[in-house]
Write a protein that binds this DNA or RNA. Structure first.
Lengths: 211, 211
DNA sequence: TCTTGATTTGACCAGGCGGTCAAAGCCACG
DNA sequence: CGTGGCTTTGACCGCCTGGTCAAATCAAGA
């Protein structure tokens, strides 16, 4: 992350080791609390306790509750969009889409708290993300939709509305993280939701996209 | 609802007209506020104001904030499960599933607040719904999954994991209500998300389920 | 050791929260 | 007109919230 590794306690222009550690602890705690309780349901006391800090100490590192929340959302976005960014225009169309599905499902399995944080935010109307949704995200989707549409024109992918194809990938993969409670309640014991979902979604998108 | 229609102001055993009206206004206001702000973000003052009642007056009709929330969830469930209940074992397999998809998507379009209320609750781990999810809902899904599996065995429906098929219908239709902000941000102007979704989902499930 | 700045904290505050209560208003009936 | 119960409300309460602040503690270089 840092280009400068000198300075015993303080890489100049960067952060102290202590700052690094405490900010990380706060973000980790914030992720746990925000994703479980939503923005309004989360309290600074709870986050501070989870991070093993006092509340004023937490506020020494972040100026407000909202700042913690915002930092989390910003951190999130890169990881969240990476799988779509990785969609390779030079690859095999169906396999590229399936790879995207697989990567997105892995995110849901491995980072369910991040998924819920994001879902909570969009559910509330995305007060913090609105610029990103209409800006960076839209641009990325436009770009990749163009790739998908080219594949469709070349007859290498079945013709479907490209942006809705992307939506359906988001919907299906997020569902297993965000509605985990419901999924497990309905399936009952003796199931591995994510493993089953992986197979099912592969089937689904293969049948949908086979030219 | 009431079997007795006599009694000028009070159908015996039932509710006064005033009670009927005010309870309805509170539930309507509660739906608006809870779905927009989540449980913790909603305040009694806001709900009361929306319902044009004073806060103590609201609490005259419902004993607590939680009671309003609970009443809303209970009201919701019947309407929410109706489309699945309507899946007809005697009908044409593919058309029955498509009809279910269509009905569920209509719910998302016409009752987005209910959809978000539900999503919010499940996201939080469904503290209120947990019995229903593991009970009534599970039973209904089990029953309909059996129908779907029979159709698959008879070769009238492509073979897929029945419960995950149901999940995918939930995920895809709810998405257009719960992530409406994101969908519209990405699509930009000049789109009718629900109309496009209707066509796309029909294609998707037809290709998936065609035997 | 002393000094200096980074770090940590207990005490505190104003505002908003869910909820209570006693009193007032209202309305249909006798 | 009066009465009794349904309905409404202003005032209030204790608690929790996000956030402040001055003082204490700590770490490390000189």
């Amino acid at each position: 992350m840092s280009s400068e590794s000198e300075g015993p306690t303080r890489p100049q222009g960067g952060r102290t080791r202590i700052q690094e550690r405490n900010r990380a602890a706060i973000l980790e705690a914030g992720l746990a609390v925000f994703s479980a309780a939503g923005f309004s349901g989360a309290t600074l006391d709870r986050i501070a306790k989870e991070a093993r800090l006092s509340k004023p100490n937490l506020l020494y590192y972040f100026p407000s509750k909202e700042a913690v929340h915002l930092a989390l959302l910003e951190n999130l976005l890169d990881a969240w969009l990476a799988p779509l960014r990785a969609l390779d225009p030079e690859g095999d169309p169906v396999e590229e889409v399936l790879l995207y599905v697989r990567r997105k499902l892995d995110l849901s399995r491995d980072f369910p708290r991040e998924s819920r944080l994001f879902a909570n935010e969009v559910l509330r109307g995305a007060p913090h993300l609105s610029d990103l949704l209409g800006g960076e995200l839209k641009r990325l989707v436009d770009e990749k939709a163009a790739v998908l549409e080219r594949w469709m024109e070349d007859g290498r992918l079945a013709r479907v509305p490209a942006r809705h194809l992307v939506f359906s990938i988001w919907a299906l993969t997020q569902h297993y993280a965000d509605f985990d409670t419901q999924v497990r309640a309905v399936l009952g014991d003796g199931h591995d939701p994510f493993a089953e979902a992986g197979d099912y979604l592969e089937t689904l998108f293969r049948r949908l996209l086979r030219p």
